[in-house]
């Protein structure tokens, strides 16, 4: 067999998968988005921009997604960085593996079950009841943006911790000694050496969390209770409840475009920030 043929055979499964699971659905969705809704729901072929002109009706979902996804990513980052730093640099190597396992233990159960736990914690008989005991009455947590953010932080933390952990773990500790040797106190060594060298991990983590958050629907559905909803929730609603496939498709296309634009902007920023450094890339 020629090497060329072998290469093709190696790529065939992935290529097929990409074609049937990504390219075809996108084509279908794009085609649908120019169509019309059938009487009983579903799709009637047509070419109209009606669905796109109707997008402002779902403005709230886009607004929520475009604020809570970046804010959520930022909060996750702010919590994950110190944790990853502790695990990679400060923690006793003896305990490191155990601590890392603890970080991913929540992944061993379904997010559904874990979200139910949060419903209880944030609901009337959870934290609000405790606050009430201390005299703080009438505090509502469940079905608020706060609840959704809490769920996001909880669910996405490991995704951010791991890439940052890896980049910090890989950091040559002698560089910090060299920095100290040249007159830099520890906090400045952190800013000048540790932080810049862990940026690839930060960039990867942010990218992962942000992209997945843009498509999130479970956490807002369960902890936002229909009051705080993402584009993902609108899609579920449009496709499964009201069976308005063409409009759902238009919303989906809009979401993909928004994602592409924000990811492009993000990559540009990283590139400029990294100032042409080879070691700061997406991965």
């Amino acid at each position: 067999m020629s090497p060329k043929l072998i290469n093709r055979l190696l790529l065939a499964p992935a290529g097929l998968w990409l074609l049937t699971m990504l390219v075809l659905p996108i084509v279908v969705v794009v085609v649908f988005s120019f169509g019309e809704r059938a009487q009983a729901g579903g799709y009637v072929p047509a070419f109209t921009l009606e669905q796109y002109l109707n997008l402002p009706a779902r403005w709230k979902a886009f607004q929520n997604t475009l604020t809570l996804a970046p804010v959520g990513t930022l909060i996750v980052l702010l919590i994950a960085y110190p944790l990853a730093y502790y695990l990679a640099i400060k923690a006793n190597p003896k305990w490191r593996t155990l601590l890392l396992i603890l970080v991913i233990v929540p992944f061993w159960t379904s997010i559904l079950i874990r979200s139910y736990a949060w419903i209880f914690i944030l609901g009337g008989r959870g934290i609000p009841a405790i606050l009430e005991f201390f005299g703080l009455e009438g505090i509502r947590l469940i079905n608020t943006p706060f609840a959704v953010l809490a769920g996001i932080v909880y669910g996405y933390l490991p995704l951010m911790v791991f890439p940052i952990y890896v980049s910090l773990e890989r950091l040559d500790k002698r560089l910090l000694e060299a920095s100290a040797d040249l007159g830099s106190p520890p906090w400045r060594s952190f800013l000048q050496i540790t932080l810049p060298l862990s940026l690839p991990g930060v960039a990867t983590g942010c990218m992962l969390v942000f992209i997945l958050l843009m498509g999130e629907f479970l956490i807002p559905a369960m902890l936002g209770g229909g009051k705080v909803f993402f584009v993902g929730n609108a899609l579920v609603d449009l496709f499964l409840q009201s069976r308005n496939w063409p409009f759902g498709s238009a919303v989906a296309v809009a979401l993909v475009l928004v994602m592409l634009v924000s990811v492009t902007i993000y990559m540009r920023a990283i590139k400029r920030w990294g100032n042409g450094r080879d070691d700061v890339s997406l991965m």
């Binding site: 040559d172 560089l175 060299a178 040249l182 007159g183 106190p185």
Partner: peptide
């Protein structure tokens, strides 16, 4: 170390 008037060339250089 950062307050000592000595400097070091490290074994594997430890360049940034």
């Amino acid at each position: 170390p950062h307050k000592r008037p000595v400097n070091m060339v490290f074994q594997h250089y430890a360049l940034f």
